[in-house]
Simulated assay, not measured.
Amino acid sequence: MIELKKTSKTYKVNGKAVEAVKDVSLTINKGEVFGVIGYSGAGKSTLIRCINLLEKPTSGEVIIDGKNLSKLSKQELQKTRRKIGMIFQGYNLLKTATVYDNIAIPLKLEGVNKKLIQKRVEKYLSIVGLLDKQNHYPSQLSGGQKQRVAIARALAHEPEILLSDEATSALDPETTEAILSLLLKINKELGLTIFLITHELNVVQRICDRIAVMENGYVVEQGTVVSLFTNPKHPTTKRFVESENTFTIPSEIMASYRSTGKLVSLHFVGKELSEEPALALVSRKFNVLPSILAGGIEQLKNHTLGKLLVHLRGEKEEYEQAITYLTNQGVIVEEVN
């Protein structure tokens, strides 16, 4: 559906070359929700704007449905862009236009007839839950409602791809969750491919199938959400995951536990949360006493991820056998240093 091949973008700033995106190669499948996460300045915004050629890559290829966008004529590019909707952090709504007109005006400019415009506006306002607000102005709406209007406007062109540029970063947690649920609904019911960028880990963990991590213009790691959450490789990925999931335990307490056994972090993915209680069986099979110090459950798009911080009290030989047993049961075990 979307393929980036060694895509790079360089700007000239005060006579100096600034490389915003460096040699990025990604493949996004049809119907997939793909997220790119990175800290400020990582190159995310430039990358997403390269997909619809709002920013023309300095080198490399951007391929949509088998078409290299940089080789299309102006007319062909315009036609392809109609398949690509985009929503932004700042909503970009016309302040003096009603909700209805904010969606209708771009369709009028495309030459869509009046009856079809009305049908589409009402259809997509209904999908985002704002049909009763069609005669309101943006100033009368909350931030979450404004973003819903922006989503309806993007959907009204009936695209195959939806690009989301930090669409939830200006919203409070409750509204963010509502918008993410809406994007999941759109992905499922309309079959849209969604490509989003964010600096918020909860966004990618909630709705993405796969994610890529950017740092200094490069994609430094990519994979499924589960794999990156449970086994991050690159230091930047680890910083994101640890900032979200690290348990805060006083150092003096941690020291006392380390002297009497082993501290481990356990990840349970999906069915392992509810099937055979592997941790409970450890004390029966080995001369080890497990103590749960902290824990939590995260809901990913297609999986439930449980995490526990556990102290295994016992001799080295016993707790090492216990760790091997847990690993063989499908539990992801990481020693805490």
Rank of each mutant, 00 (worst) to 15 (best):
M254R: 11
S59K: 15
N29M: 14
L94K: 08
S243G: 14
I103M: 04
I211R: 06
I161R: 06
L180V: 04
I84M: 07
I28C: 06
V121Y: 02
F247H: 09
G31Q: 10
G41T: 05
T168L: 12
L300N: 11
Q75L: 14
N68K: 15
A104Q: 07
L192N: 08
V282K: 01
I179E: 01
K285D: 03
S251G: 01
T96H: 15
R82C: 10
R210I: 04
A278M: 00
I207R: 08
E76F: 14
T80V: 15
P235Q: 03
V18L: 15
R82P: 00
E320R: 14
E315G: 03
V36R: 01
V203R: 00
E252W: 11
R153W: 06
A280L: 15
Q147P: 09
I117V: 13
T193W: 04
L53K: 05
V220L: 13
M1F: 09
L228W: 10
S265F: 08
S40R: 01
Q75P: 00
L196V: 10
L155P: 10
N68L: 10
P159C: 10
N68Q: 14
G35E: 03
F247Q: 03
K133S: 12
A294V: 01
L184Q: 15
I103C: 01
I103G: 01
S25L: 04
G111M: 09
M254H: 00
Y218M: 12
E166H: 09
H303I: 02
L190R: 00
F34N: 03
L326G: 03
F34Y: 15
T58I: 11
D23E: 14
L77I: 02
I127D: 01
T193H: 05
T7Q: 05
S251V: 13
E335I: 15
K271R: 14
L289S: 14
V24R: 09
K79G: 07
N68C: 11
K285N: 11
L293S: 07
P232H: 03
Y257D: 05
V226F: 13
L155S: 10
D209E: 11
L279D: 06
L54H: 00
G35L: 10
P235I: 03
I197G: 02
G66Y: 07
V333W: 03
T168R: 12
Q78T: 12
Y319S: 06
I186K: 00
F229H: 05
L293P: 02
V13M: 13
E55N: 13
E275M: 13
L281N: 10
A167G: 09
G330A: 05
G15L: 13
E189W: 07
V220G: 04
V269L: 14
N68M: 10
K233Y: 08
G111D: 04
L109G: 00
T246M: 12
E122T: 11
L309A: 01
T198A: 13
F286R: 01
G223W: 05
I323C: 13
P138R: 04
L289W: 04
H136N: 09
E158Q: 15
S259Y: 02
G129R: 03
V336I: 14
V241D: 10
S142Q: 07
V288K: 11
R206V: 08
D101C: 02
E276I: 13
Q329I: 05
S169N: 05
F286L: 06
I179Q: 02
V204E: 09
L69H: 12
